[in-house]
Amino acid sequence: MRLERRPQPSLTMTVAAPFAAVLASLVLCAGLIALAGVNPLDAYAEMLRGAFGSRLSITETLARATPLILTGLAATVAFRARLWNIGGEGQFYVGALAAAWLGSEALAGLPPALGILGVMIAGMIAGALLLLVPAFLRVRFGVDEVVTTLLTNFIVMLFVGMMVEGPLKDPLAFGWPQSVPVANELMLPKLVERTRLHIGLLIALATAGLVWLMLARTVFGARARAAGLSAGAAEFAGVPLARTLLGVAVISGALAGLAGAIEVAGVKGYVTTDLSPGYGYSGIVVAMLAGLQPLGVAVAAVFVAVVFVGADAMSRALGAPTFIADVIVAVSLLTMLVALLFATYRVRK
């Protein structure tokens, strides 16, 4: 048995890959659920009910999907250009911190529409600047960005801890380590009253459209994709590689920073060190499940959100640990990789 490259990537397999991957992941994780003494079919049914069973749970799932769409887009843009931005988690947090910092006072006097825009731009600038450092180190000194972006995540977490216990600490929070809150009039309007769903979802969906346009229809997008397909060939064809990669870093970092700003201004109002349950890392899985297609990211983000929201409900009802959500998501990343392989290769005896 050996693998043989298909003359043309199979379209059917490419489209079927995410579905096959998710199905395979659910089958594989059934064993772990059974280990907890829970019937896997009951567990999956409970997860679906938990994610879609009521009006409230649907809004909760979509609220969870909102930051995932943006961190998924951040990973998509970067990975398309082969810039391995694994620092989405750190960029999310600096974006959130910048939003809370400026949104609490500096921007609070502005008309709400302008102030909200300012909060989001603040988050985007913070995220972009954070990723520019590793991207610059890569193009200038050839330092591998995988390790630097990963290490940056840890530095940022400590920085966030320092800020919410120090300069940005909310004096009215009864001593809890949390940041000053975004002013009430700068909080994103709700899409559905008395839920956590806010207009950030629409912003995220519109952003997905913009990213698609950028990658598919602009010169910069073509250069970014060329850099990812073959850096050598792209350079030979006259693509300014360093400038393109720095541009990709700005966009990718800004998207992850925007996710943080929107999460703060949309849901919680302030920053704590547990603001994100790994949105940055899950964004990588979202991007891969979407086959690095910006429009697919929205669908993949909803899937990941369903797993997380559903697992919380399932855990409350049946008792299997909520970490099963992380396992299902991680395994679907691996099964997706294998499924995609069969789109470009076939097995020959």
């Binding site: 899985v285 640990p321 970490f323 992380d326 991680a330 294998v338």
Partner: peptide, 23 residues
């Protein structure tokens, strides 16, 4: 043997191994 992206597979292993561990 499958020759998949070492970056993505490795990150997937990290996510899988740590979530499996916590579970």
């Amino acid at each position: 043997p499958l020759g998949l992206s070492q970056h993505v597979s490795g990150l997937g292993i990290t996510l899988f191994a740590s979530s499996f561990t916590y579970y």
